[in-house]
Design a protein around this nucleic acid. Sequence first.
DNA 1: TGAGTATGTTCAG
DNA 2: TGAACCTACTCAT
Length: 265
Amino acid sequence: MPEGHSIRHLATIHEGAFAGKTVRASSPQGRFADEAKNIDNRILNNTTAHGKHLFLHFDTGQTVHVHLGLYGWFYLSKNPNKKPKDSTRLRLQHDIYISDLVAPTACELLDDAGVSAIKKRLGPDPIHDDADPEQAWKKIVKSKRTIAGLLMDQSVIAGIGNVYRAELLFLSRLDPFIPGTQMQREKFDEIWRNASILLRDGSTDGKIRTVAPEHLGEDEVKLHGCSQFSYVYKRQRQSCRLCMTEVKETELDSRTLYWCPTCQR
DNA sequence: TGAGTATGTTCAG
DNA sequence: TGAACCTACTCAT
């Protein structure tokens, strides 16, 4: 489930498990073997996250940069005898914890310049206290692209993926297809504010929660806290939770967009 | 058991 | 714009 909230969640978990400790690093799959040797038996200083990018900073001055992509994930375990899968790109281990990274889009060893280059091409991340929404607003308001497309552009705002995109647009009752040039400042501020709140909330346990309890069905209320619900994401051909109009889906920039044509006019 | 789908990004053409 | 990356889950057979 790798949107920004998951990456922050994983950064926090890895910092708690490994920071300040001497870590064994290996690559059972082999594709990160040479790089793993550089950080094997070194101390992991701390972790950071920006958008969907995770950084593990070592005392060598080097940083492991991970992007999970669509399939990637870290599997944490306390079982010292756990066997890695053949596909495990990176295994981090010390006395207590094992973390296995499987199927990431990116796993590479960078110096400070490499880390800076990645952060430079990313927009502000609403999960950060010191993120500057002005940077995002300036790009949005001068773009003719749709607001739905702009919200998914990591160089505009970092960390929002397809689920949060759909839900944020619904929460602000925004037509996904209006161009950035027609965005109202108040609407942008609302999206930014909601993104900050929802991403932070999701980062506590890695789960996306966007629906207010009063908008959940009776059966769903019983499950609330165990499962994830949405207003429009993946609810195509179902009724809108608020107005009962059928939720629509369409392809936009090669991703599926979900919206309520009545609430989001 | 196999097909289909997915919360993402990069690169070739 | 489409293919590639190459995992986990759901659903139909």
